[in-house]
Design a protein around this nucleic acid. Structure first.
Lengths: 341, 341
DNA sequence: CGGCCCGGCACAAACGTTTGCGTTAACACA
DNA sequence: TGTGTTAACGCAAACGTTTGTGCCGGGCCG
């Protein structure tokens, strides 16, 4: 039912199946006379031949398939990354299998397992935590892996990330330029590289700009979701020494912060300024418009795919352990001078 | 490098590879003694055996892979559908390969082609246009296909959709209840089933509620994007007989409509009420809050996957040509009584 | 004109599974 | 003891490719 095979074309044209195979392979084609190539190609076209990737994969141990591990495709951060990845994969004849981990270790394990069963040529991992012994095993099995957006603490797995430090620095600069001196930070989960790096960058920047931030103005969220942003903001704003600005580790935390500010009868940016990180399209439409740092989502996807392809197709080649892409600050309405009281 | 195989386990345990295969197959296991099953299972576990799906797929012609064709994963309508699909696929050991068509025919063709090369067991198609002769070919090739969210005009391919008619009817009812009599409709592209069905439903409902809508208050968009919503709204609002409400065929058109209203110095809902269709999460945060009809995105995904699995695993069984899921109206701020002038 | 080289194709094995069938031995029954 | 039955496992082919190797004939050189 499904499928004309090489054997069919061989019977039809009178050539041997191996000859047919070569005639259809651009790289092996040169060993054949043009006449044969022509005849075979025509027959293949006419008969509607579609190569069976399973068979060729079984033989070559290469499937032209890569696994894409993400926390949740429903999170607007990831679809653009996915498209970035596919923009380089598709022209090369690769497809990607996407799996969602929901940020759960056990799911990550099992999902990577199904990818390996499927014989993926490599894995792009966007859901990685800072430390995960599992990757040692992957490295031993020699399956190419690159992490995107986040990085592992351990070395050996290349990462494609955005310039977290510069992004945070830009936000701190923006806030201090607006006149803020009491800037709080809602940090991301510390098991994520972005969490610790943005956190560290915040401390750096604050020092650089001569600010003195009390320890209790730095508060750690447990997950990168709105409700955590609300929770942390409520805590922050119940302090006697209230911050006039909140620098959140990402947009969703920032959105939660703004919600909390409104709920407490305050206003953003009137009473409290807020900044985020990542920048998804819709933020523009949500008042007061979140000032944030835009990361090149398609860009990191693209780069990680390029990197992975290189690791797959020329494994001996050395790869950059870390490529960091520039960010861009986008100013909207959520930052204003602090209220004078 | 990658891979302990059945042969390895066979050598290790002293059994034949076929016996090992059976021991590891829950369905064939019963033909063996418990002792053999035990030994083989333990060895497999110990050696870290992972079945090679390529090989088994080659042999059985079943890959436990389904293709998922969508216009653009970046459109927030689709990730929830994808998750819905995977919520039923994953527990069954299936994975999905997602391809984006960007609403282009040529890309749809080629992408479906790569799916077939990959030997998918079936296809869930969320990017289908009303008429597409290509599907006849798919049907002849006996590859199971179900369309989701949209439907084909031609019969023979089951569809899982939302209750478009009821949704539109609810919006018309809502608007008339608010006092509107001059309701305009921005219709979707007429090559999409949702476009024509919502359009038809609008005419029905308008008649049902005793409204008389002039023909020029129904305007067709070319694509389901914000800019088209703006364009159509600008046209609508430059009319002498200006509508007091705009019922858009989907949320993105509605969002564009609201933008245009604001840009023209009018206000929504003060001057013009607006309703949408689909309801993505973020709409809640965008002022004035879009009143819209919520479709069960995860639900349609889930149902379509269930349907497809049944078509795959018991092909002889009859399948519903069309399953329609109920909608839910969600009222927010974009609807108010018409201005009294 | 004989030897050699080489271009151009065929042959066959292999990738890791699955599965119909054959073989063996054990056992029951006559 | 011989025959038939059955349970438990081995054998081998097959899925559709790819690719190293073998073979054949024709052209070149000496």
């Amino acid at each position: 039912m499904r499928g004309v095979t090489l054997k069919d074309i061989a019977r039809e044209t009178g050539f041997h199946v191996s000859t047919v195979s070569r005639a259809l392979d651009p790289r092996a084609r040169s060993a054949l006379t043009d006449e044969v190539v022509q005849k075979v190609s025509m027959a293949a076209e006419r008969m509607g031949y579609r190569p069976n990737r399973l068979a060729s994969g079984l033989r070559t141990k290469r499937t032209k398939t890569v696994g894409l591990v993400i926390p949740d495709i429903t999170n607007p951060l990831f679809p653009p990354i996915v498209r970035g990845v596919e923009s380089v994969l598709e022209p090369l004849g690769y497809v990607s299998i996407i799996v969602n981990t929901d940020s759960r270790r056990d799911r990550e394990r099992s999902q990577v397992g199904v990818l390996l069963e499927r014989g993926v040529d490599g894995i792009i991992h966007a859901a990685v935590e800072r430390e995960d012994p599992f990757f040692e095993e992957l490295r031993r099995q020699k399956v190419p892996v690159v992490t995107v957006n986040r990085a592992l603490d351990a070395e050996g797995i290349p990462a494609v990330v955005s310039d977290d430090a510069e992004g945070i620095r830009a936000m701190v600069r923006l806030l201090t330029n607006a006149g803020h001196t009491r800037i709080a930070h809602i940090a991301g989960p510390q098991q994520l590289s972005t969490g610790v790096e943005r956190h560290a960058a915040f401390r750096e920047a604050v020092k650089e700009f001569g600010l003195k931030i009390p320890e209790y103005h730095i508060i750690r969220s447990d997950r990168l979701i709105e409700s955590e942003g609300r929770r942390c903001t409520e805590a922050l704003l119940s302090l006697v020494e209230r911050p006039t600005a909140i620098l959140a580790a990402n947009d969703r935390l920032a959105l939660g912060a703004i919600e909390a500010i409104n709920q407490m009868g305050l206003s953003c940016p009137g009473d409290v300024s807020v900044t985020g990180f990542n920048d998804s399209e819709v933020l523009r439409l949500i008042p007061p418009g979140l000032t944030t740092v835009r990361v090149d989502k398609a860009g990191v996807g693209k780069r990680s795919a390029e990197l992975l392809i290189r690791m797959i197709e020329s494994p001996e080649e050395e790869t950059d352990p870390r490529t960091v892409l520039p960010i861009e600050v986008v100013e909207r309405g959520s930052v204003a001078p602090p209220p004078k009281d």
